[in-house]
């Protein structure tokens, strides 16, 4: 069990390592302009520097700001999106009314809402979080209602014949039965809000955040810091997905055999 896990991590890391090595070689041999390309060793050095920075915000503080915004956005999107998704999944007429609107709005990239929100509520957290919420909302509402609609009719019958009322059936059968779809929506929502929050930070953040940090570094042609930020964006997302989310799945739908 443990050995398999280590094996899996290794086979994930190997190609990444190869990529970094090639990048390093290109940088060392000066095959391309290093002010544009930088080098992995320089980037990692920079990350350490940025962690220890005393004269400005550390990269940890920037990360914390992005993570906090994403968490709030995801929490709001999950609360609103799940509630509405449940309603849409249960009430056909409401779904028929709202579905065209949702279908129309869903493909719009989150970042495209930023100019509107900046105009409405200005720069700063309210705009970043609102746009992050909006972009996570659509996959969550869509997948929740899909999950509820695709519940097996027979499992509802099994419960109704025992004398369960509608409320009990919704709470104890329809909701747990939709968990695989709800989880999918939540994971898509996490990915979407993380991307959107960082993107909007470049336009609307006034204090910090990984997006802000990267965009700010660009003004000083500090490519190395840009790479440091980018690597952290990927790293933090993968960390959350592979620990928190995985753990949550392992304890629920995976344990119940509802996903493989």
């Amino acid at each position: 069990m443990k050995a398999r896990k280590i094996n899996k991590i290794l086979s994930f890391m190997a190609p990444l390592l190869l990529f970094f090595i090639i990048w390093q070689i290109v940088g060392v041999l000066d095959l391309m302009d290093t002010t544009l390309l930088s080098k992995p060793t320089k980037v990692f050095e920079r990350i350490i520097q940025l962690i220890q920075a005393t004269n400005k915000k550390t990269i940890i503080e920037h990360s914390a700001e992005s993570i906090t915004r994403t968490t709030i956005a995801l929490f709001l999107a999950t609360t609103i999106g799940c509630s509405l998704g449940i309603l849409l999944g249960l009430k056909k007429n409401i779904e028929e009314t709202l579905n065209p609107i949702i279908t129309f709005l869903m493909p719009i990239p989150g970042i495209a809402w930023a100019p509107l929100f900046i105009t409405w509520i200005g720069f700063g957290n309210p705009t970043i979080i609102s746009v992050g919420t909006l972009s996570a909302f659509f996959p969550i509402v869509y997948n929740t209602s899909l999950g509820i609609k695709s519940i097996n009719k027979q499992i509802i019958w099994s419960t109704s014949i025992m004398g369960a009322n509608r409320r009990k059936i919704i709470k104890d059968v329809i909701l747990p039965g939709s968990l695989p779809h709800i989880t999918t929506g939540f994971k898509l929502g996490l990915a979407r809000s993380w991307r959107t929050v960082i993107a909007v930070e470049m336009l609307a953040a006034t204090t910090g955040g990984l997006g802000y940090m990267v965009f700010d570094a660009r003004e000083y042609l500090d490519v190395t810091t840009v790479y440091a930020g980018i690597i952290l964006m990927a790293f933090l997302y993968l960390l959350v997905e592979n620990t928190l989310i995985k753990e949550l799945e392992n304890k629920t739908i995976k344990r119940w055999g509802m996903i493989t």
Partner: peptide, 19 residues
């Protein structure tokens, strides 16, 4: 008039609660 606990039902595909 509708389903009720004076009856029990067994399906071919079991339809148990996975959770």
């Amino acid at each position: 008039k509708g389903p009720g606990p004076d009856r029990g039902f067994v399906f071919q595909d079991f339809v148990l609660y996975p959770w």
